[in-house]
Design a protein around this nucleic acid. Structure first.
Lengths: 338, 338
DNA sequence: CTGAAAGCGCTTACAG
DNA sequence: CTGAAAGCGCTTACAG
């Protein structure tokens, strides 16, 4: 690789100090530097194709303008859509994003945190996996600026941007009931992640509110690490009961995607025999033979607010902000009244 | 934020030089340092929760162990799947990935390159947009290690990992013909991107080989920046011809996704009236009422080879390597014989 | 208007 | 076995 041009090279060519070159290129001390010299410096920088060494600059200024993004899995559309929004927001404030996937694994998550901190990221945006309280508390203890996104821990008083999951489930299940369903199942993950527990709570709450006693067999949980294998089993159970369910809520896009694929292979008619609502939108929903109703998370707003909140923290803001944004139920064909 | 612990802090506590601390923590000069001191240093580092400042290390060693990944759009499943594979491969060699989306725009692409170079990435993995030859040549001129992924320029003799696009189209169209189709359309992008031209060439070549004269109205192009709006128009054209097409090849996952959504709204029966094959797999393909045949790109292999090749370059390898990997036609229901 | 100098936190050739 | 010292490429308080 060719030798990179440094401030020193420019300084030597122009016959000034590196300090002056630095001032000019950073537009510091404007007006207090002779126009002539300033112009000469800029010209020479251009001619030599000078490129700031951000590493050196970061070492000196103690700011890297880098943001660490930890998602569950960047190849999941939910994560990658958020990543894209965050990329765009970060770009607006001159930030670059480094990312990593935790695979819902607290240990991998811990490793990512460490890697990112070693790299001196200015802050982190985090979708935390199950059982990662310790790492979150560590970050707080160290005073590292970060914002939790999507997932959060009610016991930890820290910044987060998330959905109002309980309300989202309530609206969804209310809709199922309003369109004539009474035996409503839900498939969620076997997890202690609070946002999913809230989704389950909302489901139960809606049933209760509408005078439908909860049948405990209606609420199924599948392993996060083993979703595909588990789904067929629990769906068979839900559909093979004495009184099979006539409404179903999927708690995530992955659950929905796998579930719909399986439904495609069955004789069940959606929405006539089984009305389905899914959390999150994926293109899969549109291509299912009966376009699905879904709970749309305000991803753009979530990503924007997360970056905005992180930036506030980088700028010294210390008050904690917690946001549970409302979801929107997108109503299409899959729950026409019976 | 709390003061970060530096080598100096450890050195002071233990009563040795920073040099020694550095040697111990980096496992340099093993055996030439007294066990006692080494252990004391390690203990103290642990006790103080020492964290290497990678920025300082990078400045000194001139290596950041950071890799820049430029994709078309991280929120597109094709990009995010590759990103995930690259993340995993990079992790194996202790690399972190910073990413950016070019949106198929040469100017944004140029900006990303500059940002990443300022940040002293050790190398780049690039899905280049249309008309970005200049930037690629610049990278070559500067001797920056990089590997093109998915897209490449035949006129530029540089490392790339891509698909054998021509052959992939040939196999796909051959299959359509073999199963009884004679009027075969293709929808591609309006672009000069070589990999798409190859896909088109393969399509034409198969028709020719099979004695079917090309009807120039069969090959449609849509704007990359405006895919959704364009698709309905060209599909209407293809299906409203005096002799409507009975076979169709989609040149990308986005084209397929939009196209299938539109087909869903029409009366056309797939595959009976129209046999469809798509490039790339997306979950959407599975949920279309007639599971689609598709051209599967070996994404894992592509991502792995890209990182492997980049690593070779970082280690000083200078011979250019160009790989066109074979695709696989995944045959399912959507082209049963007429 | 401009420069000499210190220092960010590391690594490493050299000396002993 | 260990340390003093230089230096990576910047920024910036200070002095003039």
């Amino acid at each position: 690789m060719m030798k990179r041009i440094s401030l020193k090279d420019i300084a030597e060519q122009v016959g000034v100090s590196t300090a002056l070159v630095s001032y000019v290129l950073n537009n510091k001390k404007e007006g207090r530097i002779s126009k002539m010299v300033a112009q000469k410096i800029r010209e020479t920088a251009k001619k030599l194709n000078y490129r700031t060494n951000q590493i050196a600059k970061s070492l000196k200024t103690n700011r890297t303008f880098t943001l660490g993004l930890i998602v569950a899995d960047i190849s999941n559309p939910f994560s990658s859509t958020l990543a894209r929004i965050i990329e765009d927001e970060a770009d607006k404030i001159q930030y670059t994003v480094i990312f990593g996937s935790s695979d819902e694994n607290a240990q991998k998550f811990d490793k990512l945190i460490n890697t990112f901190l070693n790299r001196q990221v200015d802050g982190l945006i985090i979708s935390a996996p199950d059982h990662s309280e310790e790492q979150i508390l560590y970050l707080m203890g160290q005073g590292i600026p970060f914002v939790l996104l999507d997932r959060y821990f009610p016991s930890i008083p820290t910044n987060y941007i998330a959905l109002d999951n309980r309300q989202a489930s309530i609206v969804a299940v209310d809709h199922l009931i309003k369109t004539g369903r009474r035996k409503i199942g839900m498939i969620s993950y076997d997890t202690t992640l609070h946002h999913l527990l809230e989704r389950e709570e909302g489901y139960k709450q809606s049933l209760k509110k509408n005078g439908i006693p909860l049948n405990e067999h209606w609420l199924k949980k599948v392993q996060i690490s083993n979703t595909r294998e588990n789904m067929e089993k629990v769906m068979d159970e839900l559909l093979a009961m004495d009184e099979p369910i006539d409404g179903l809520l999927f708690a995530s896009n992955t659950i929905a995607s796998v579930g719909l694929r399986y439904l495609n292979t069955l004789e069940i008619k959606v929405p006539e025999e089984l009305a389905v609502i899914s959390y999150d939108e994926t293109e899969a929903l549109d291509l299912f033979y009966s376009p699905l109703i879904y709970i749309r998370q305000p991803l753009s707003e979530m990503g924007q607010k997360a970056v905005e909140l992180l930036l506030k923290n980088l700028d010294g803001e210390t008050t904690v902000q917690q946001l549970n944004l409302p979801a929107e139920l997108i109503i299409r064909a899959s729950t026409i009244p019976k």
